[in-house]
């Protein structure tokens, strides 16, 4: 009883990082996302859960405009990061993506050395003035990706030679190397074994100190473990959004309850 309001207070202290209003996404004639309104907080892990095809990944990819690369995809509505509309005509998606990093479902390191994997982003954005700078950025990113100790002796070995879990942490390190403000993760652990998953989850927990992390997951246990806020998507609608604890223990919507108890999905 004493704890509850305190947690509430703690959570609402965070600023709103991403604000989405009436977001619609169409793939050709298919209406994939319908009227999604959501406020995602800074320095918080927000989990998107829901059955396959519910639109959670689609919505995630709207936040860094990765959907722009799909010809038939059309986004309507309003998504703001720090009060700026990311679908404004003046926004260059390339610049936006430096600010909103992304980690994908399957670990996808470039077929280059570990060092080059991390250094690529900072290089193209001009974050390093010289080699020493770049070395420092690479080390910092690898440390934040919790993989430095494992790879520091073989920075010039190919990134594709690492194990699955290491590759995924390398990808996370690569994403944080460009100093983003938001980190989007699309089922980052679906290709990993339980031990690697635990390592990545631990990492996500640390990352929330600096970033607003949005994670799409199929595992409800994972959502419960790592996130402070959870959003439940179903058939393109955002059904329910709130404190993770509340969503899992006392959902308001019957669809959320059915999904969590395994009756739909």
């Amino acid at each position: 009883m004493y704890d509850a309001p305190n947690t509430e207070l703690h959570v609402t202290q965070n600023d709103i990082k991403i604000a989405a209003r009436k977001v619609q996404v169409y793939y050709g004639d298919t209406h994939a996302i319908k009227d999604v309104d959501v406020d995602i907080e800074d320095k918080t892990v927000t989990a998107f859960i829901g059955p396959s095809g519910c639109g959670k990944s689609t919505f995630l990819r709207c936040i860094n405009r990765m959907n722009d690369t799909i010809d038939i995809c059309r986004v309507e509505g309003d998504i703001q990061i720090d009060g700026e509309d990311i679908y404004d005509k003046r926004v260059d998606p390339v610049q936006l993506r430096a600010k909103v990093g992304m980690v994908f479902q399957k670990p996808n390191p470039f077929p280059k050395s570990i060092y080059d994997n991390i250094a690529y982003g900072p290089k193209i954005h001009g974050l390093a003035k010289n080699k020493a700078d770049l070395d420092e950025i690479v080390e910092k990113a690898l440390r934040r990706g919790a993989i430095w100790d494992e790879v520091k002796d073989r920075l010039h070995a190919p990134g594709t030679g690492l194990s699955g879990g290491q590759q995924q942490r390398l990808c996370i390190a690569r994403a944080v190397a460009t100093e983003p403000e938001v980190l989007l993760m699309d089922e980052p652990c679906s290709a990993l074994d339980p031990i690697a998953t635990a390592q990545v989850e631990e990492l996500i927990d640390e990352l929330k100190q600096n970033y607003s992390v949005v994670i799409v997951t199929h595992s409800m246990q994972q959502a419960a473990r790592v996130s402070q806020k959870t959003a439940f998507f179903h058939l393109g609608h955002l059904v329910e959004y709130g404190e993770t604890g509340k969503i899992f223990t006392n959902p308001e919507d019957t669809r959320t309850e059915s999904y969590i108890t395994g009756r739909i999905g």
Partner: peptide
């Protein structure tokens, strides 16, 4: 693999 394109675009490379 398209994942390589995604990876590059994801760290803010232009097309």
């Amino acid at each position: 693999p398209p994942s390589i394109r995604d990876a590059a675009l994801g760290v803010g490379a232009s097309k």
